[in-house]
Amino acid sequence: MHLQVGIVGLGEAWEWGYRPALRRLADQFRVVGIYDSVFRRAQLASEEFRAHPAESFRGLIFRPDVTAVLVLGSDWLGPLPVTVACESGKPVFLGAPFELTLSELEELTCVAQTTGQPLMPALGLRAILKAARVPELIEVSLGDPRQIFCYHRMLRWGRGWRSHLAAKLAELIDGCLFLLRQPAGSVVGLSPGDFEECPSGLKILGFGCEVPTPGKAQATVHIVCEWFSKPVCIEGVDFRGTSELHLHCEDGVACFEEGKCLSWSDPAGHHRERLDGQACPEELLLAAFYQAVVSKAPLLADIRDAYTALSLVAKAQESRKPAGDIYRDHRKPG
């Protein structure tokens, strides 16, 4: 069964992410129409998918043959296309949730609750970890995580580095909390130099949080993001991949290297599983959205998860002020 979708905003990840993912998922998705603020770009994409290039996002969303909406880039429109789609009774996939501000994500949380429509944000690390069966491994073999160390290397540079860094940090925070299945308690942000100034060369941003677990010692999460703000020799810095996740659990340890391998040790011995054949995050996310809409499966993530992750980034930045650790309110918006 095909899910007939309209695409609003192609976004930064279109060429290398969502475009090839939709081609590989041609048996699940049929693109009916495409809207982008640059109309020529929408025309070119529509020719490839034999879709209709729309002149307005409202006209595309209200088409009777569009049953779901993929908002892959917000441009200058902000949360408006998502709100219109939800209020028109159509499920929405939000491909770049961290392009929106914290207040806009809170607004969309209220919209999703009011309309009752599925609204799934693209939280890539969560999708990758689930595809690699890391949550299942924790439940069956390793036991509850006590410490998670996450390391990520970003190799892009240029304008907009600050928003890219905050978005990636929010995605990493969400992935770690997805494994812990508990809300964060205190959070702290650590960074040499001023996060608000344009960096030169290597920029490191650290994040830490403590997660209360009932009846046990609290778990801790440590995240380090490296950002290369100027052109560097990619071959020299990318020899170990871009993301690593180290889990120290009650009954074992595990190391996850994105796109490469998952290795772990438990009471049964040492194990290693290659991940080089795993689908890209965009394909995993779209497939999960398809299952949620067509088969009524639970959403892989909802908009509250994106709001929580971005709010923790804001709290971590705030904690770098002299006041120290920041304790977040566990209540979710709405």
Rank of each mutant, 00 (worst) to 15 (best):
T213V: 11
G236R: 10
L245S: 06
K168D: 12
G189L: 11
A170S: 15
P231Q: 15
Q218S: 10
A219M: 07
G252H: 12
D238Y: 12
Q182T: 00
P214F: 02
G175N: 05
E257D: 02
R240A: 10
L180N: 01
S191Q: 09
L275P: 14
D251Q: 14
Q182L: 03
A268R: 11
Q291L: 03
D266W: 06
T242I: 00
A288F: 07
L285A: 15
L169M: 13
G175Q: 03
P183T: 02
C249P: 00
Q278K: 05
E244H: 12
L285R: 13
A170M: 03
P231E: 13
G269I: 10
E171N: 11
F178N: 04
A287H: 15
P212K: 07
W264M: 11
G189D: 10
P199N: 00
L205A: 11
V211T: 09
S191T: 11
K230H: 07
T242P: 14
G269K: 04
P199K: 00
F289A: 13
F207D: 12
L245P: 02
E258A: 11
C261N: 14
I173F: 00
L286H: 06
H270S: 11
P212C: 05
S243P: 04
G277R: 15
C198N: 07
L247R: 14
R274L: 13
G206M: 14
S191W: 04
L205M: 08
I173M: 00
V237L: 08
G241M: 15
C176D: 13
P267V: 09
K203N: 05
G259I: 08
W227I: 02
C249N: 08
V237G: 07
D266Y: 07
Q218P: 15
A254S: 04
G193H: 00
P212D: 05
A287P: 13
A287F: 01
L262Y: 07
G269D: 04
L180V: 02
L202N: 11
E226L: 11
F289V: 04
E283H: 01
S191L: 12
S243G: 06
L202I: 06
E171L: 01
R240N: 09
G241P: 15
A279T: 02
D194M: 09
E235G: 05
V253D: 15
A288I: 14
E283P: 06
D266K: 09
W227Y: 12
G201S: 10
L180E: 03
G241S: 13
R240L: 14
R181W: 03
G193E: 02
Q291S: 15
E283R: 07
V221N: 07
R181E: 12
P231S: 11
G277C: 14
V253S: 14
L180C: 01
K168Y: 01
P267R: 10
P267F: 09
F289E: 03
S265E: 05
V237N: 09
D251I: 01
A279D: 14
E244M: 06
V224K: 07
G193V: 01
I223T: 04
H271T: 03
S191I: 08
A254N: 10
V188F: 15
A184M: 02
E257S: 06
Q218W: 00
G208L: 11
H246I: 06
E197F: 02
